[in-house]
């Protein structure tokens, strides 16, 4: 049902946890649907995502996509991170079952929310 990569990221998820004094926090999904993805990022002065952590409630696809997105953006600029799509995350995992593409493939959305949160905070700080 799942690719080896999905199973690897599900059984050995990367970057689980929280960040002290995170620059941005993003969360998508809700418990009623059975998926919540929470992502925290730490952004340095050069707009590079220095650190990223996640917490996810959901199925193996939800956990694996969360883990994968953290690997994909760590060390990347905000601009690069913004260009990552849910589809790209699924492709990096060698694909997901069709039924999972809609409900459990939201990790990039959570990342984008975290970036948005960081931008809003930066705006407020500089205002």
């Amino acid at each position: 049902m799942y690719s080896q990569k999905v199973m690897d990221h599900f059984m050995n998820p990367r970057n689980v946890g929280k960040i002290d004094l995170a620059s941005g926090v993003g969360e998508v999904g809700n418990p009623v649907c059975g998926d919540i993805m929470h992502i925290e990022i730490k952004v340095n002065d050069e707009d590079i995502i220095e650190d990223i952590k996640f917490n996810t409630f959901g199925c193996a696809a939800a956990i694996a996509t969360s883990s994968m997105v953290t690997e994909m953006v760590k060390g990347k600029t905000l601009e690069e991170a913004e260009r990552i799509t849910n589809r790209a995350v699924a492709e990096a995992l060698d694909g997901l079952p069709e039924v999972k593409m809609h409900c459990s493939n939201l990790a990039a959305d959570a990342l984008h929310e975290a970036i948005k949160d960081y931008m809003a905070k930066r705006e407020t700080a500089s205002a």
């Binding site: 599900f10 409630f57 959901g58 193996a60 956990i63």
Partner: peptide, 14 residues
Amino acid sequence: QFVEGESILLMLDS
């Protein structure tokens, strides 16, 4: 509470 069934099944399966 706080966890999802499919994840439990796959871990048990392992």
